[in-house]
């Protein structure tokens, strides 16, 4: 892949990106503004803006970060205007804490990571998916076997199977 070139979203890709991230981005905005309707407005405005300004990205990997950053800024923007309107309901200290650079970074990572996991699990047969889900929830092989009423050997083969599928979808693993 040519790294030097800026990455341009086609309309289809923009739509795909929307379909995949819209809800996560709303939940991210919700971490700041604590109101789903307001969160939706914020995220929609960011999408409109990106479309209108025909933004291009340094690389495909930067798109998510870009959107999360934009949603974060917009959310803070929203809170400040809310602060202006209702001085008493929004303590200034809270706003300052939110403004701290990485305040909600972990939340963005959680949303993205679980989105990837959910997609991976959807691609697996339901029993294998269940086994992996339990494993992610920190169940040991033995506990998974008991919970699902299957042998430890089957649990292990589910894991192996899903790891092989994962190799194909998550490209960076191929380099390893």
């Amino acid at each position: 892949m040519d790294q030097s070139k800026e990455y341009e979203l086609t309309l289809k890709e923009y739509e795909n990106f929307f379909n995949r991230r819209y809800k996560s981005l709303c939940l991210f905005a919700n971490e700041y503004v604590n109101d789903l309707d307001d969160s939706e407005d914020i995220v929609q405005n960011v999408f409109i803006k990106v479309w209108e300004d025909k933004v291009s990205f340094k690389s495909k990997d930067k798109i998510e970060s870009f959107f999360y950053t934009a949603v974060k800024n917009k959310s803070l923007d929203f809170l400040r205007s809310k602060y202006v309107k209702n001085v008493n309901t929004y303590p200034l200290e809270d706003l300052e804490a939110l403004q701290t650079e990485n305040y909600n970074l972990p939340e963005a990572v959680i949303l993205e990571t679980s989105d990837i996991i959910e997609r991976e699990l959807k691609a697996l047969p339901s029993k294998a998916a269940k086994a992996i889900r339990l494993s992610i929830e920190n169940y040991k092989n033995k506990e998974i076997a008991e919970e699902m009423n299957i042998s430890i050997h089957t649990v292990k083969s589910y894991k192996k199977e899903s790891y092989q599928k994962l190799r194909k979808t998550l490209s960076f693993l191929r380099i390893v």
Binding site: D61, K62, E64, Y68, L105
Partner: peptide
């Protein structure tokens, strides 16, 4: 929030 995607992929 620069490396969300690569980080999320690796954690996942």
């Amino acid at each position: 929030l620069d490396k969300i995607k690569p980080l999320a992929e690796k954690i996942a």
